[in-house]
């Protein structure tokens, strides 16, 4: 088996497996760095240059969007990385007048953020910790259903119409607590009851089963911060 075939095989595995995708990104980190260096005309510094992060997400996009009709994978990935880096730089140019908190100030070149009063820092840290705990709880909870957050992200509705249909089913479940109880008890989405009660096609709910489970779990009383974050969804309003 030649190298190209091996890469293609890895890419196709990574498309359906999050862990494989992470391994592939890790394996090809030197390639991603090289492509970023070509753009920056200097080696990128990990943890400092946002461009490297942009290149990495572009590589991830390349995994998702690659088909053999697009030619060799690495050429396709390189093209996508370059395009995303150009997009990012154009976007950043619009914010040039905004000062960065990381920019050096004063004689000792300390970042600007260090010179600002940290009145909100403590509250933010506490909130972040609480949010982190809720997220960890949600991840554990989802694991009981055999679902990961990556699965949920991949299963989210892409079209507004489908999103509205999923929300309709969600509101119906919210107003019928027994459905949520059944979900938690059986670890299975009550598709028939949701479809019949909400009027949403069963096929639509089946296609977005993973997303629906995650949304319904957040809708339970355990996740107050996340419920607060999606308050407009909970109230039945959409955010633009």
């Amino acid at each position: 088996m030649n190298d190209e075939q091996k890469i293609i095989e890895q890419v196709y595995k990574a498309k359906i497996n999050v862990e494989q995708a992470d391994y592939l990104i890790n394996d090809y980190l030197p390639f991603i760095r090289a492509e970023t260096a070509k753009f920056l005309k200097r080696p990128p510094i990990e943890g400092h240059d946002d461009e490297l992060s942009i290149a990495m997400i572009a590589f991830h996009e390349a995994i998702g969007g690659y088909t053999q009709t697009r030619g060799t994978f690495l050429k396709y990935a390189a093209m996508l990385i370059r395009s995303r880096l150009i997009d990012y730089h154009r976007r950043e140019q619009r914010h040039r007048h905004v000062l960065s908190l990381d920019m050096p100030t004063g004689e000792d070149d300390a970042p600007l953020i260090h010179s600002l009063p940290d009145a909100t820092d403590h509250i933010e840290t506490v909130t972040q910790e609480a949010t982190r705990a809720e997220i960890e709880e949600l991840i554990r909870h989802l694991k009981e259903f055999g679902i990961t957050l990556s699965d949920v992200a991949d299963n989210c509705p892409k079209q507004q119409r489908t999103l509205s249909a999923c929300r309709k089913a969600f509101y119906y479940a919210q107003s019928h607590g027994e459905l949520l109880t059944e979900l938690l008890k059986t670890k299975r989405l009550p598709l028939a009851a949701l479809a019949a009660g909400s009027g949403v096609e069963r096929k639509t709910l089946e296609r977005h089963r993973t997303y629906m489970i995650a949304l319904l779990l957040i809708g339970t009383n355990r996740y107050e911060i996340m419920r607060g974050h999606i308050k407009y969804v909970m109230k039945g309003e959409a955010v633009k």
Binding site: M56, L163, Y211, L215, V233
Partner: peptide, 12 residues
């Protein structure tokens, strides 16, 4: 805020 899970670049 719309209840959608999305993937994004990890800017630290």
């Amino acid at each position: 805020e719309n209840g959608l899970f999305v993937k994004a670049a990890d800017l630290h």
